[in-house]
Amino acid sequence: MKPQRRPACTHFSSGPCAKRPGWSLAALEAAVIGRSHRSKLGKGRLHEVIERSRRVLGVPADYRIGIVPASDTGAVEMALWSLLGPRPVDLLAWESFGDGWVGDVLKQLKLPNARRIAATYGQLPDLGVPDPAHDLVFTWNGTTSGVRVPNGDWIADDRAGLTICDATSAAFAMELPWPKLDVVTWSWQKVLGGEAAHGMIALSPRAVERLECSVPPWPMPKIFRMTSGGKLIEGLFEGETINTPSMLAVEDAVDGLKWAEGVGGLDGLLARTRANFAAIERWVAATPWIAFLAERPETRSTTSVCLVFVDDWFRGLKPDVQAKVAKDVVARLEAEGVAFDIGSYRDAPAGLRIWAGATVETADIDALLPWIDWAYGEVRPG
């Protein structure tokens, strides 16, 4: 039987993610449009995004925060191209985005002392392998695998290298140990449901020191440059962006940050995310044909929740048929208008991926899950 109850918001995409509850275009009415982003008003709004982000995330006062081009991708690339080279680098990869950074370092920057430390989907690499004398590049939360690092205890306090952390689906939803992280990147379209195309980068004093003391041997594109004449471009971290930002997107980011403050700041965001994940966790425990892709409970993402079908019928299918079954489940949910964009990532094992970040209401998660029961029952024989 089809469930009777439907989610009020049917957006469960892992990026761009659901807007905050109650959002409408009216939230953008105060946007600084038709004006220069370099005007006092425009720069002020950009600076507001930086300072509200600092307060909500608890970023230390001596870390610089900047708004950069090209979403989290641009922020990570900026860090890789600007900071790597002086030391060997360890690259952790257990899903597609982390593997993408490995490819860029090995194939584009062609660093000779780069080491790939990898694991398959559903697992983490051995976190005891990275050398504290090396630079380190890793994603905090694997958006396409639903696998995250459990904490930052494995990162040495007395490390000589820099840690570069892609935290785009973890920032605002998971606790980040800032003293362990020298570079942290995220984007607006993830946990707070902002609009795309803009990224954020936070730099520790150690990262700034590296920028000012080391000149990369390769040509540096303008959109990656954080220094001039061997000194940090301070304006970049005060709202003077490298390129022209969308002030509509900026206004939306301000709105999302205000909402975050209104629900209790980081503690409130964490509580909302954990409640959403707990609802899925209860359902998985009671449903014999579904399981988390992440094998260990402590490594399971609470935002990009990746699930796989595990009953004997599904496991007996060929991989291409498994992929078709998963797509059929997703298609039925979309046709019913109860869930959009919850298919697994194209490189991941066939299954589902449900965004459970803070902008999603737990009531909508609870309403969604019986529909997945129904959809899988429709495609499974008998």
Rank of each mutant, 00 (worst) to 15 (best):
K2L: 01
A8S: 15
G15Y: 10
A18T: 14
K19Y: 15
W23M: 15
L28T: 12
H37Q: 05
H37T: 03
R38C: 14
K40V: 15
K40D: 11
G44E: 08
L57K: 04
G58T: 02
G66K: 00
G74C: 14
V76R: 01
E77Q: 03
E77H: 13
M78G: 05
M78W: 00
V89Q: 12
S96N: 06
F97T: 09
F97Y: 08
G98L: 04
K110F: 00
K110L: 10
K110N: 14
T120W: 05
Y121L: 12
G122K: 13
L127T: 04
L136V: 06
A160I: 08
C165P: 00
A167N: 15
E175T: 14
D182T: 05
W186V: 12
K190L: 04
V191S: 13
M200R: 01
M200F: 14
L203M: 01
P205I: 00
R206G: 00
E212G: 02
S214T: 08
S214F: 10
W218F: 00
M220R: 05
G235R: 00
E238W: 01
E240T: 00
T241M: 11
P245N: 09
S246F: 09
S246N: 00
M247A: 00
G256R: 01
W259D: 07
L270Q: 07
A271K: 11
A271W: 03
A275G: 11
I280M: 11
T287Q: 13
I290N: 10
A291D: 08
R300D: 07
S301M: 02
S301F: 02
G316I: 10
K318C: 04
V325H: 07
A326D: 13
K327N: 14
A335F: 13
P349C: 04
I354W: 07
G357A: 12
G357Q: 07
E361V: 15
L369Q: 02
V379M: 13
